[in-house]
């Protein structure tokens, strides 16, 4: 699998990563190499094999009781935010 510049631009857009012009060919090259490398997986016989999403096969989801245990700490939590006003996180205008 060899990726084109255009492929990498699309992936970067989907992942919301600004990639500058100079870096782009480096990613085209390394991502292509990585994809070629992982294509070894095609050697494996995987018919009728159940995909493994999780290392501990027998575990199932635990469920918690429906209880409110939280206090309002928004001021503390918002100290890490670049822009906050009136308790709201600010972002460039959302256009629907």
């Amino acid at each position: 699998m060899s990726l084109t510049r255009h492929d990498v631009e699309n992936i970067a857009m989907l992942a919301r990563l600004a990639i500058n012009e100079a870096e782009l060919p480096v990613y085209v090259d390394s991502l292509s190499k990585i994809l070629n490398f992982v294509e070894q997986l095609n050697q494996a016989e995987t018919d009728n094999v159940e995909p493994m999403a999780h290392p501990l096969a027998d575990q199932v989801q635990r469920m918690r009781a429906d209880e409110v245990l939280e206090q309002d700490h928004h001021e503390k939590y918002q100290r890490n935010a670049a822009r906050v006003e009136a308790g709201l996180y600010l972002v460039p205008k959302v256009i629907e």
Binding site: L41, N42, A44, T46, V49, P51, M52
Partner: peptide, 8 residues
């Protein structure tokens, strides 16, 4: 496919 090989 990777998840299947992971199982193997």
């Amino acid at each position: 496919r990777a998840q299947k090989v992971r199982r193997l």
